[in-house]
Simulated scan of single mutants.
Amino acid sequence: MNIVITGASSGVGFEAVLDLILKNENKVIALARSEDKLQRLYEIASSLNPDCTLYPVKFDIVHDDYLSLVPFVEERFGQVDILINNAGTLINKAFDKLSQLDFAEMLQNNLLGHVKMIQHLLPLMKAGSHILNIGSMGGFQGSVKFPGLAAYSASKAALHTLTECLAYEYEDRQIKVNCLALGSAQTEMLDKAFPDYESPVMAFEMGKYIADFALTGHKFFNGKILPVAVTTP
């Protein structure tokens, strides 16, 4: 499988890449903003599987030039089988302290960056491809919500709705689109949102779940927002 994943330099994205590269048939382009962390990812991946095909690429999904990224992907892959939109960021701030810029930042990083990635890679995706968006229980309708996460949760809810829309817009092309609404996993982002909370789920466990679902979930689901949580947060 030819796989592009964003937000690959830490947390569940980092762990998902390490799981995906264990199979030589998976070729991965890993995108993130931190070059140092991407280099660490490459070193660990190479130690786990010296024959793996992994291209770490420093790339900001909001601000960087897709006119250079798309030829890079096309030259190495020809076509993209799986796109995992995992990049994102979080602001934890009381609602009455949130500025319009805070909301704009959340929407840029957690929605519009993914919109740009999907729009630019769709021409490289054929029937049977899978777009997997990584959402959050914070944006899942009916879930418990938490103070300080209004902007973050609203941006994730928007990503969830985008998933449903695209699944049916691209149904005729047989491109499946799903979203995993993640609960807690022990990551840097969780530490930022809930400093005193310890998740029962480790980042590598959630990363493996994401990797497995990216490879097989579209055989069973399309347009679904699936909660992945044993606890809330």
Rank of each mutant, 00 (worst) to 15 (best):
T232H: 09
P233Q: 10
A211R: 13
L31N: 03
A181T: 04
T6Y: 03
L38F: 13
P56W: 12
S153L: 08
Y152P: 03
F194V: 11
L182T: 11
K224A: 14
N133Q: 05
R173Y: 10
P233R: 13
D36V: 12
Y209W: 09
D212W: 12
I29F: 06
I5H: 01
T6R: 02
F146D: 05
F146S: 05
T6P: 02
E15I: 07
I118V: 15
A167W: 03
A214H: 08
Y170V: 01
T6W: 01
N49D: 10
F221A: 12
K176Q: 11
F95D: 07
K126G: 11
Y42M: 14
F140P: 02
Y168M: 12
S68H: 08
K176V: 11
H218L: 05
L20C: 09
V201Y: 03
P50C: 02
T187Y: 07
F194H: 10
K145P: 00
L180F: 07
D51I: 08
D36F: 12
P123H: 09
S155P: 05
L111S: 04
A94W: 04
E25Y: 14
E15C: 14
Y66H: 08
D196H: 15
L41A: 08
C165A: 15
L48V: 06
K58Q: 13
E169Q: 14
G142W: 09
K145Q: 10
I61Y: 01
E74T: 08
D102A: 05
I225E: 06
N178Q: 10
K224Y: 13
E198R: 15
S184R: 06
I225M: 08
L38W: 13
V115D: 00
N110L: 01
L54P: 01
I91H: 02
K27C: 12
G128S: 10
N178R: 09
A185E: 01
V12D: 01
K192F: 07
S34A: 05
S34G: 06
G148C: 08
L22N: 15
P147S: 15
T161C: 09
E164L: 07
S9E: 10
E74K: 14
G148L: 03
I134F: 01
T163S: 09
Y209G: 08
E75C: 08
L69H: 01
T89V: 01
A32F: 13
L41E: 01
I118H: 11
G7V: 02
F14W: 12
H160N: 10
I91R: 03
L111D: 03
D36M: 12
R173L: 13
A94F: 08
I225A: 09
F204C: 13
K176G: 07
T187G: 09
L98K: 06
Q186S: 12
V201A: 05
V73T: 00
P233T: 10
R173A: 13
E205I: 09
M137S: 09
V230D: 15
D196M: 15
P195E: 03
M125F: 10
A157I: 10
P56T: 14
K156L: 07
I225L: 12
V12T: 14
N86V: 00
S99K: 13
S136W: 09
N2K: 13
E188W: 05
